[in-house]
Lab assay of single mutants.
Amino acid sequence: RLTVMSLQESGLKVNQPASFAIRLNGAKGKIDAKVHSPSGAVEECHVSELEPDKYAVRFIPHENGVHTIDVKFNGSHVVGSPFKVRVGEP
């Protein structure tokens, strides 16, 4: 089962990169992540390998409000996905 680490749920800033990590815990497959902005825009997140069992997911929010992040592994949502994060002040 995958572990999502260091996902900041609030206090993110517009046009500043945000990232979190995913540990695969021995699982093999493909991570896919997309961020949905409050206006409905959908953007791919950048996924990069940090070490053999750990990946970083990076995105840049372009507007204030609550964004939804879909994180999928081999086509299925990971536990807790979709995640909600707040950009800007509430």
Results as ranks from 00 to 15, higher is better:
His62Lys: 13
Ala21Val: 09
Gly29Pro: 01
Ile31Pro: 06
Ala56Cys: 12
Gly11Lys: 12
Ile31Asp: 00
Val35Pro: 00
Leu2Thr: 10
Ile60Trp: 11
Val57Leu: 03
Ala27Ile: 15
Ile31Gln: 00
Ile69Gln: 00
Arg86Val: 11
Val35Met: 11
Val71Gly: 00
Ser10Thr: 06
Gly29Tyr: 01
Ser81Asn: 10
Glu51Ser: 07
Ser39Pro: 10
Glu51Thr: 07
Lys30Asp: 14
Glu63Asp: 13
Pro90Ser: 06
Ser10Lys: 15
Phe73Thr: 06
Val57Phe: 04
Ala33Met: 11
Leu12His: 02
His36Asn: 15
Ala33Gly: 10
Glu44Ala: 03
Ala33Tyr: 03
Leu24Tyr: 01
Lys84Phe: 06
Ala56Ile: 15
Ala56Lys: 09
Cys45His: 13
Lys84Leu: 11
Asn25Gln: 04
Val4Cys: 14
Ser19Asn: 14
Ala41Phe: 11
Glu44Met: 02
Ser76Gln: 12
Leu12Ile: 08
Ala27Asn: 04
Glu43Trp: 02
Ser6Leu: 10
Asn64Cys: 09
Ser6Phe: 14
Asn25Pro: 04
Leu2Arg: 02
Ala21Pro: 03
Ser39Ile: 04
His36Arg: 11
His46Trp: 15
Arg23Glu: 09
Gln16Ser: 08
Gly65Lys: 01
Ala33Arg: 00
Ser6Ile: 05
Val47Leu: 03
Gly11Leu: 09
Val14Ala: 04
Phe20Pro: 00
Ser81Cys: 08
Gly11Val: 04
Ala41Cys: 06
Lys54Asn: 06
Val42Asn: 07
Glu63Thr: 13
Lys13Asp: 05
Phe20Arg: 00
Lys13Arg: 10
Asn64Thr: 07
Ser19Leu: 03
Phe20Lys: 00
Gln16His: 11
Thr68Gln: 12
Leu50Trp: 06
Gly26Cys: 04
Val78Gly: 08
Arg23Ala: 12
Glu51Asn: 07
Ala56Asp: 12
Pro52Ser: 12
Tyr55Ile: 10
Asn64Glu: 14
Glu51Ile: 13
Thr68Asn: 11
His67Tyr: 12
Asp32Lys: 05
Glu49Val: 09
His36Cys: 10
Met5Arg: 02
Asp32Cys: 14
Val66Trp: 03
Asp53Ala: 04
Gly26Ile: 01
Thr68Val: 09
Lys30Phe: 07
Lys28Gln: 14
Ser39Tyr: 07
Arg58Ala: 07
Glu63Asn: 05
Asn15Val: 01
Leu24Phe: 07
Asn74His: 06
Gly26Val: 03
Arg86Tyr: 12
Pro52Met: 11
Gln8Val: 10
Arg1Ile: 15
Asp70Val: 08
Val79Glu: 12
Leu12Met: 01
Pro52His: 09
Gln8Met: 10
Ser81Thr: 05
Ile22Arg: 00
Val4Lys: 08
Gly26Ala: 05
Ser48Asn: 13
Ile69Asp: 00
Ala41Arg: 14
Thr68Phe: 13
Ile31Ala: 03
Thr68Met: 11
Lys54Cys: 05
Leu2Asn: 15
Glu44Trp: 05
Ser19Ile: 04
Lys30Gly: 05
Ala21Glu: 09
Ile31Arg: 01
Pro82Thr: 01
Ile22Val: 05
His77Ser: 10
Glu63Ser: 10
Thr3Ile: 15
Pro82Asn: 05
Val35Gly: 07
Val66Ser: 11
Val57Thr: 04
Lys84Pro: 06
Val66Asn: 10
Lys34Phe: 06
Ala18Ile: 06
Leu7Ala: 02
Glu51Gln: 13
Leu12Asp: 00
Lys28Met: 09
Tyr55Asn: 12
Leu24Glu: 00
Cys45Gln: 04
Ser37Met: 08
Gly26Met: 05
Gly29His: 06
Ala56Gln: 10
Glu63Lys: 10
Val78Trp: 02
Ile60Glu: 08
Met5Gln: 01
Ala41Ser: 08
Gly65Thr: 01
Thr3Glu: 15
Gly11Ser: 12
Ile60Pro: 00
Val87Thr: 15
Ala18Thr: 07
Lys28Asp: 09
Pro17Ser: 11
Gly65Val: 00
Lys13Trp: 02
Tyr55Arg: 13
Leu2Glu: 01
Glu51Pro: 07
Glu43Tyr: 05
Ser6Asp: 15
Asp53Thr: 04
Ser19Arg: 15
Phe20Thr: 00
Ser76Cys: 09
Gln16Asn: 05
Lys34Ala: 10
Phe73Gln: 03
Lys34Thr: 06
Val42Leu: 15
His67Glu: 00
Val42Trp: 10
Asn64Ser: 10
Gly40Arg: 04
Leu7Lys: 05
Glu44Ile: 01
Glu51Arg: 06
Val85Thr: 14
Val78Gln: 06
Val57Arg: 00
Lys34Tyr: 03
Cys45Met: 08
Lys13Thr: 10
Arg1Thr: 14
Gly80Pro: 05
Pro82Lys: 03
Thr3Gly: 14
Ser76Asn: 07
Leu2Gly: 04
Ser37Lys: 01
